[in-house]
């Protein structure tokens, strides 16, 4: 136990959970279970974020993805939850092509990831020497246009505003798209359809 580097252990734990449930999402047939697995995978990803020092992003991931996006997703699932849609099978051919193509992609990516020495990580002493820095205020200041962490880099005020407006537009648009359609024909009214 003495030689164990605990962050790595937690990395393995979270990364394993994330990957395992991502694979579970891929292979699950039931759409609701897929959503459930996805939640777990994303929550584990949030753990990875915490582990990498991005505690604010991790909290955002929990709150927005796990709390918001997936609620929306499940909501959609339920609106369309009829037996015939809950489990829709794909062709076996699709699976075969997919596995091969995806496997090739995975191999390429992993090979690329490990082919760069700078990404291999530091030794333990060096890693322990890294300062603990809080990220909330610098991120917030960055979003407000002041970079306290790296004064030579530009702030994100303008993208922040654009994203705000974008969100507003998107939400209005989504509400418009998803609004209940009125059935206007008198025949429908008469039959109570």
């Amino acid at each position: 136990m003495e030689g164990i580097y605990w962050p790595s252990v937690f990395f393995l734990l979270f990364g394993g959970i994330a990957c395992a449930f991502a694979v579970a999402v891929l292979f699950s047939k039931n759409i609701v279970r897929m959503a459930f697995y996805l939640v777990i995978s994303l929550a584990a990803t949030a753990g990875l974020f915490f582990l990498a020092g991005a505690d604010f992003v991790g909290a955002m991931q929990l709150m927005i993805y796990v709390g918001g996006t997936l609620v929306l997703l499940v909501f959609g699932v339920m609106l369309t939850s009829q037996e015939r849609f809950v489990e829709m099978k794909s062709d076996a051919g699709d699976w075969v092509i997919g596995i091969f193509a995806g496997g090739a992609l995975l191999v390429v990516l992993i090979w690329a990831a490990f082919s760069i020495p700078a990404w291999q990580g530091m030794d333990a002493a060096e890693a322990n020497a890294v300062a603990v820095k809080k990220t909330v205020t610098p991120i917030a200041m960055g979003l407000l246009g002041f970079r306290v962490d790296a004064p030579d880099r530009s702030g994100y005020f303008f993208p922040f505003e654009i994203v705000s407006v974008h969100l507003l537009v998107v939400l209005v648009g989504a509400a418009y798209l998803a609004r209940a359609k009125r059935k206007t024909t008198s025949a429908n009214l008469a039959t109570g359809d």
Binding site: Y5, W6, P7, F50, L51, D55, V130, V132, K134
Partner: peptide, 10 residues
Amino acid sequence: SLNSKLRTSP
């Protein structure tokens, strides 16, 4: 944070 504890405590 979780991170600092994990990283520094050992």
